[in-house]
Simulated assay, not measured.
Amino acid sequence: MKVPLAAILRALRAHKGLTQESIPEGSNRQYLSQLEHGKSSPTLDKLLDLSEAYGASPLLLVGAATLIQEGITVDALIDRFAEQMRELDAAGTLAAALAELEDNGLRSRPAGRVIDRDLKASIQECKAQGLTQAQTSQNLGVNKMTVSRYWRQSE
């Protein structure tokens, strides 16, 4: 995504008649040059700074870079984004993410991994049936690393 982001940053800066020197503090000229030459990727915090400096939302910068990279139309990008956001909302993922926040930060969690006993039992059952870890991962729709972790644990 470095090159498409570089292209949109260059185009936005030129469109707005800005120079690298005119971009507000927090993004120095050498850093901007590296971004605009596709040699560096911004952190999320820097992306937010850039979006403010260019008068564009971070969503616009990432969306435009995605559009360029994938060679799709604006309408196709908007449709895909809307569909994926609706899926997140319908699945309760957005509500779950909001529940992770409290007092302008993330709510604290206990140290260590939480054991999903139902998932562990399902993985152990697949193991007992003679399935491989890869088959178990695919059948249960679970990350291979998660399967591997529970695979090694006895019931």
Rank of each mutant, 00 (worst) to 15 (best):
V3A: 13
A6F: 13
A7F: 07
L9M: 08
H15A: 15
H15E: 15
K16L: 09
Q20T: 04
Q20G: 03
Q20W: 00
E21M: 11
S27L: 15
Q30K: 13
Y31I: 07
Y31F: 15
L35T: 01
L35F: 02
H37F: 08
P42M: 03
T43C: 08
L48Q: 13
L48W: 12
D49I: 11
L50E: 06
S51N: 05
S51E: 01
E52M: 02
G55R: 03
A64V: 07
A65P: 03
A65I: 06
E70K: 00
V74T: 14
A76Q: 15
L77H: 11
A82N: 15
R86G: 09
L88I: 11
A90G: 12
A90P: 08
A91W: 03
T93S: 13
T93M: 11
L94D: 01
A95C: 07
E100K: 06
L106V: 00
R107M: 00
R109Q: 04
A111C: 02
G112T: 01
R113I: 07
R113P: 06
V114Y: 02
D118G: 10
L119A: 09
S122M: 12
E125A: 14
L131M: 14
T132Q: 12
T132Y: 11
Q133E: 09
A134M: 12
A134C: 07
N139S: 12
R149I: 10
Q153T: 08
Q153E: 14
E155A: 08
